Simulated assay, not measured.
Amino acid sequence: MAVTLIDVASAAGVSRSTASRALSGSSLISPETRAAVEDAARVLGYRPNRAASALRSNRSHLVGLVMNNLLNATFHTVAEVVQKRAAASGFQVLLCITDADPAREDDVLAMLGEHGVDGTIVIGSGRSASASNALLAQGRAVVNLIRSVKGSSASTVLADDVTGARDATAHLIELGHRRIGYIGGNEDATSGRERYEGYRLALADAGIPVDETIVRKGPFTTEFGADAINSLLDAPEDMTALYAANHEAVFGILPTLVGRGVSVPDELSLICHEDMPWLAMWQPAITVVDNGAAQLANVAMDLLFQQIKDSVEPDGRTYRIGARLVERASCAAL
């Protein structure tokens, strides 16, 4: 005989309605009661009928998480936070990877709408306004994260990339560097535009013109990182420092520096944008701009749940999370 919600409620010592609220993530239920109900459900092997629940409540308890790739360490942190926050509220997460392809992104967003997700967080190409606005029109919550989307009516959560990049470049200038190379993303991405702007502003603050011969912009890939650092190292004019603003490119930059025998920081001072555990374990430990990945994800989930649980209308505002420079051992005075 199939285990029912009444069986779970009886085993947990609560009413059927309390058990239902506990399993649906209601904020009205105490953590202790929720844990007791979840333990009873687990022991009895109870699986709620999501389809029936969705029909009754007009809520699927599904959240979509759309990402460009799984290489970026910030995206890993976002996924962990979203999963934990969703599970704590009785939601399941549908993870979708688009490879930053706008057409695939539109298809994924349409698919999530067809599956009745209650809300979606989008880390995308920045070109999905029509698809995300269609979800909003269906009464589904949407939050854009890390990349802005022109024309989107959804709220957006961004890192303060201009300040982070400006602080990183200024730090190198304070150490006496004037020839500071730059490897960043293309300017169709928010981080590509804003990190380059921060780099440019810091140089301008010090009266240093941008030298485009030591600037490389390209896709968010390991291969681009390797190609970019090789071309900079082969250039006739040497750089004494490098600001690596393209996070995915770092996976190509660091091994290439090791392979070519470049000593950091003796021959080249280095700052990377976006932290991840192995940058602190690299030899030498790499100075980074911490973009606040966990904070970005938590604010995005706060905004998403406000729309889902409290019926708060999205206002199209942009929320910023401050960056901070984490000094380690990869920079030296010139």
Rank of each mutant, 00 (worst) to 15 (best):
S15G: 11
Y182P: 06
A204C: 09
N69F: 11
T120N: 03
T169L: 05
S155V: 09
A285W: 14
H171G: 01
Q92P: 12
A110C: 03
L95R: 05
V37N: 08
R21V: 01
E327G: 00
E248F: 09
G185Q: 14
A36T: 15
L325T: 12
D7K: 02
S125P: 07
L109W: 11
R50W: 14
L95F: 10
S125R: 11
I6L: 14
N246E: 02
L201G: 00
K84I: 11
S89F: 00
G124Y: 09
G261C: 08
H171D: 03
G207I: 00
R178H: 09
A52I: 02
W278Q: 13
P31N: 09
R34Y: 12
L232I: 12
Q306P: 02
G90D: 10
L94R: 05
T169P: 01
T77A: 12
P219L: 10
F220T: 11
T74D: 12
R216M: 12
L303W: 01
G207R: 03
A235K: 10
D101K: 04
G64E: 03
H247Q: 13
D315P: 05
D238V: 12
P277I: 00
A241Y: 11
S155N: 13
S10Y: 07
I214W: 09
R179P: 05
L44S: 10
L95C: 08
A300I: 01
G64T: 04
G90W: 13
V142G: 03
A332E: 15
H177I: 03
G25V: 02
A154S: 13
S30N: 05
A241N: 12
L334M: 09
L145D: 07
C272G: 15
G218P: 00
A285F: 14
V157G: 07
L270E: 15
S89G: 04
S263Q: 15
G113E: 08
A249K: 10
T74Q: 04
V288E: 06
D315H: 09
L158T: 07
A244I: 08
A2F: 13
E194G: 02
V258I: 14
L65P: 06
S60W: 01
S30C: 09
R140W: 07
L172W: 12
A79N: 00
A168V: 04
V14P: 09
I6K: 10
N69R: 12
V8G: 00
G176D: 14
S231I: 00
E237N: 14
S153C: 11
D290H: 05
F220E: 08
H171S: 09
I208H: 15
V258D: 14
V117R: 02
F305R: 02
A285Q: 11
Y199P: 01
A51F: 14
G207K: 06
R59I: 02
A141H: 03
R85I: 08
S311V: 01
A159C: 10
Q307Y: 05
R127W: 04
T120D: 02
L71M: 08
L233C: 04
T4F: 07
D315N: 08
E197D: 08
K309L: 14
T318K: 12
G90M: 05
V210N: 14
A294I: 02
R200K: 06
L70Y: 15
D211W: 11
D7C: 09
S130D: 15
T318G: 11
P255H: 07
Y196D: 03
S130R: 15
G64S: 06
P265N: 15
L55M: 01
L270P: 14
I208A: 08
G113C: 07
T287M: 13
G164Q: 11
R85G: 10
